[in-house]
């Protein structure tokens, strides 16, 4: 394995509507030692602003390593990477600006709450990004209301006195308060009950559809991926192996099962129908499938 770093500046052709551009991005842990482990190999992709992309793959496939590049928690070793116009091949990209624009919600983000009050916790970002103190409360109020909590009710509470679902929403608010243009979510619904999952996903969809936030969601729940994402990127052993809309990807049932991923229920259903020559319009969830089937039946009876 060549040890020399080959960082390539991003070409100037990166279009303004491109949120993330990666070309042959390669990364090894302990790159300098002989026991270095390749975590990513030749990842090339372009994600446009406003897309809702799901990133899936088995544990250890490189998903987390990849997303940590997006706000330079991991620095570029080989290849090129451009995020919102920041060329990460540069020695000193504007990290503060980048990290403000790329909001990162880690797994179980409620474990990272730390301040005495919800207000302080949510204001930590703006404070460190140098936003004038007079604006903090206004920004926090906006973010806390965005995640569906009552600002006056929670602002002076200790975040540790809230329920699990509320804590997670406060953690989300702490990221959203900086109004990121890209939101990276690492298993945002893990450990939540069905209702909590639904609420978090509704929030993410709202941010994506109404405010145009680009969403990169890492998930192990293929049903959730199918029902929410416009595009699914599959990682396997550090390589990008599929990059397709969910409706196309999950037609490949054998390949999906080979990778120890599940075929979403709605996709499995549509696949059976397709094999029998019945094609439904694009359906994301049970309700849409039901509506499509009712329409089909009505049409055939008429």
């Amino acid at each position: 394995m060549p040890r020399a770093k080959k960082i390539v500046p991003t070409p100037s052709v990166v279009e303004p509507n491109v949120a993330i551009y990666a070309d042959k991005l390669t990364f090894s842990y302990n790159a300098k030692s002989t026991s270095g482990k390749r975590a990513l190999t030749d990842i090339s992709l372009t994600i446009n602003r406003g897309e809702f992309v799901a990133l899936v793959g088995h544990t250890g496939s490189g998903k987390s390593t990849f997303v940590q590049h997006l706000n330079a928690l991991m620095r570029l070793q080989q290849g090129s990477l451009n995020v919102l116009g920041h060329d990460l091949a540069q020695k000193k990209p504007n990290l503060m600006q980048l990290r403000k624009q790329v909001g990162m919600v880690f797994q179980y983000p409620e474990y990272q709450l730390f301040a005495d009050t919800v207000l302080e916790d949510v204001c930590f970002g703006p404070k460190n990004f140098g936003v004038p103190a007079s604006e903090h409360e206004q920004l926090a109020k906006k973010a806390i209301e965005l995640v569906g909590l009552d600002f006056e009710e929670v602002k002076n509470k200790s975040p540790f006195d809230l329920s699990g679902g509320e804590k997670r929403r406060v953690a989300f608010a702490g990221v959203l308060v900086s109004e990121p243009q890209i939101l990276v979510l690492d298993e945002p619904t893990a450990g939540l009950d069905p209702q909590g999952k639904k609420e978090i996903l509704q929030l993410v969809r709202k941010l994506n559809k109404e405010q145009g936030v680009t969403v990169i969601m890492v998930s192990h729940d293929m049903n959730e991926v199918y029902e929410n994402a416009d595009r699914v990127i599959v990682f396997r052993d550090g390589c990008l192996v599929y990059d397709l809309p969910p409706q196309q990807l999950f037609r490949l049932e054998n390949e999906i099962e080979d990778m120890n991923l599940e075929v979403p229920q709605v996709a499995a259903f549509c696949n059976v129908l397709e094999q029998a020559g019945i094609t439904l319009p694009t359906c994301h969830n049970v309700e849409e499938v039901f509506a499509a089937l009712c329409a089909l039946k009505e049409g055939s009876n008429a």
Binding site: A268, F269, C270, L273, A276, I278
Partner: peptide
């Protein structure tokens, strides 16, 4: 069983 359900729906629609 989603696949069995799929089979039944195919029968019905055909």
């Amino acid at each position: 069983d989603i696949k069995m359900l799929g089979g039944e729906v195919c029968q019905e629609l055909k």
